[in-house]
Write a protein that binds this DNA or RNA. Structure first.
Length: 463
RNA sequence: GGUCCCAUCGUCUAACGGUUAGGACAGGUGGUUUUCAAUCACCUAAUCGGGGUUCGAUUCCCCGUGGGACCGCCA
């Protein structure tokens, strides 16, 4: 048995889609599960729309989520000559022919078909006609001679047996009028050249398999196995489009989703292993298989992503979490300087408990990151005279305390509760407002312990 | 319109033809709590409809219904 090799073959015509990420993930997991190779192939043969910027973005995105491709990425456009050679071979062997129909002619046929409510199949005008006069002003396209009768069966690793009538497959184009190869051709040639053993791709490619299979047969090449995975739908149930708010991987990164969480979410979308919900990277490699892939499309669920993200935020190492936060702030907020960073590391322990996203942590850390606090009018009202007196008393004792610990603070606060005949809230609330600018936030001990002593004093004196 | 695919709680999904149809997320109720959270306990909630096959159908078959994909000189 040959070494398993899979590939992810995006076209760099836009930022990487969340569905694409899952396809890449499944390919990668499948190959690693089989101790095989995973390749990245950039299908940039559409020169009009392909952009280097997108290519880089795709590579970055895959890297972000932890998918490493073997070898260097394969750039399809660099292999165009090989694709053309194959087209010529097919032509020579009689598996393909030149079609001199003008684009207008084809357009007309399509409109006719549409009017009659029939599916469009090219009428194969040039398929066998040697006696037609070749027009001088038309650059021909090259079409593949698709089978016209009988049935064709694909044994799909996810979909099972799929059977269609050959008559619905038209003589598809393999070389455009400018002689550049189309996807159907390039994809097959490259998969063959790269020794791809398993093609795992979106459901939307299923029909292409019937076209591509015929090229394999004509060239007498070994067919890879195919697995067509159902597509991901938006929350409303329709096809995921670029217009959806969160459709690209960057949208999620911006939201403060961490890679482990998104990876785990995508893994479980359309795939399952018993009742297991949380998978480490190693576990997912060890357990992934195509049998666990379902056949029905699944909807994106933001609350689930958030909940998984919350889980990972709580469970990953705090230093690691801080690193992620730092990168996040640098990319989407503002960079964290060293002294603040130092305070933040100490505070991750409680900051993370309130957070579903890195953005949440960032928000919760505002009282540390900002030098000046903005107290909302509503909170300001809570700082009445008795409260101010409590704060003054607290400041007084706090300044005199040499060792600041939870115990010493407890002592002070309990003393104040007695003295001012109030409860914990009576002391805690004004303190929280004075120190963080808000009556909501982390525990009061956590706040005081996280802030530098001078900073605490400064803030208390300001009110 | 044609071809193909799919169908279990709101969502992601589990269940060799025999289960009180399970888990997770979301939602709800209560406990805990200095706030917001978090946390713990409990609860609600599904086999699309109709026919078969079978002692027995979520599971197999057929028909309907609903959803989706494809129908580019895009990939």
């Amino acid at each position: 048995m040959s070494l398993v090799a899979t590939r992810f073959a995006p076209s760099p015509t836009g930022p990487l889609h969340i569905g694409g990420v899952r396809t890449a993930l499944f390919n990668w997991l499948f190959s690693k599960n089989n101790k095989g190779k995973f390749y990245l192939r950039i299908e940039d043969t559409d020169k009009e729309r392909s952009k280097d910027e997108y290519k880089n973005q795709i590579i970055q995105s895959l890297k972000w989520i932890g998918i490493q491709h073997d070898d260097k990425e394969y750039i399809q456009s660099q292999n165009i000559n090989k694709h053309k050679e194959v087209a010529n071979e097919l032509l020579k062997k009689g598996f393909a022919y030149k079609c001199y129909c003008s684009e207008d002619e084809i357009k007309e046929q399509k409109e006719k078909a549409k009017k009659k409510g029939l599916p469009f199949v090219y009428n194969r005008k040039w398929r066998d006609s040697k006696n037609l006069e070749i027009p001088k002003n038309v650059d021909p396209v090259t079409r593949f001679k698709s089978k016209m009768s009988g049935n064709n069966l694909i044994k799909d690793l996810v979909q099972g047996n799929v059977n269609i009538s050959n008559s619905i497959i038209e003589d598809f184009i393999i070389l455009r009028k400018d002689r550049s190869p189309t996807y159907q051709l390039s994809s097959v040639v490259d998969d063959h050249l790269m020794n791809i053993t398993h093609v795992i791709r979106g459901d939307d490619h299923k029909i292409n398999t019937f076209k591509q299979k015929q090229i394999y047969e004509a060239m007498n090449w070994k067919m890879p196995e195919f697995a067509h995975i159902p597509l991901i739908h938006s929350e409303s149930g329709s096809k995921l489009s670029k217009r959806d708010k969160a459709s690209t991987i960057n949208d999620y990164i911006k939201l403060g989703i961490i890679s482990d969480a998104l990876r785990n979410y995508l893994l479980r979308l359309g795939w399952s292993h018993q009742d297991k919900e949380i998978f480490t990277l190693d576990e997912s490699i060890k357990l992934f298989n195509l049998k666990g892939v379902g056949k029905s499309p699944s909807k994106l669920d933001m609350t689930r992503i958030l909940s998984l993200n919350e889980h990972y935020i709580k469970h990953i190492d705090e230093k690691e979490l801080f690193k992620l936060l730092k990168i996040y702030c640098k990319d989407f907020k503002k960079s964290i300087d060293n002294p603040k960073g130092h305070t933040l590391i100490k505070s991750m322990k409680f900051l993370k408990n309130k957070a579903k996203t890195l953005e949440d942590i960032y928000q919760n850390a505002q009282y540390i990151l900002n030098n000046y606090l903005q107290i909302s009018p509503e909170d300001l009202k809570l700082l009445d005279d008795p409260s101010i007196n409590i704060l003054k008393d607290f400041l007084n004792q706090y300044e005199k305390t040499s060792i600041i610990s939870k115990e010493s603070l407890e002592k002070i606060i309990n003393g104040l509760i007695d003295k001012h005949k109030t409860n914990f809230k009576g002391v805690g609330q004004p303190l929280r407002i004075a120190l963080t600018g808000s009556r909501f936030g982390p525990g009061i001990y956590d706040i005081i312990l996280s802030l530098d002593k001078n900073e605490t004093i400064k803030r208390l004196k300001l009110v």
